[in-house]
Amino acid sequence: MCLAIPAQVVEIDDVSDSGTVALGPVRKRISLALVDDVSVGDFVLIHVGYALNKISPEEAERTLALFGEAELVEELAAAPGGGAT
């Protein structure tokens, strides 16, 4: 369940605790009532018009690297002599 999508904060209105996010070329007004310390430029997860969480760029990179690593493990295993050259 729980359709949510990452989008970048492009505008913050502290008075109404809301902001505007950009999802590619699409912009949408959302509530920031559920998150703390959000700055313009941050990526947040949007669910039913609310930012639910910040997205960690470092962790995203790490996870993406894992996908490549899966094959690295495989390549090492497949290489003669365990792959240490």
Partner: peptide, 23 residues
């Protein structure tokens, strides 16, 4: 779309798929 498109890449899917088949 950042944090969306990267996680749908076919080349990476093939890599993970091969690892799963191996393991």
């Amino acid at each position: 779309m950042k944090y969306v498109d990267e996680f749908r890449r076919q080349d990476l899917a093939k890599k993970v798929s091969r690892a799963i088949h191996n393991e």
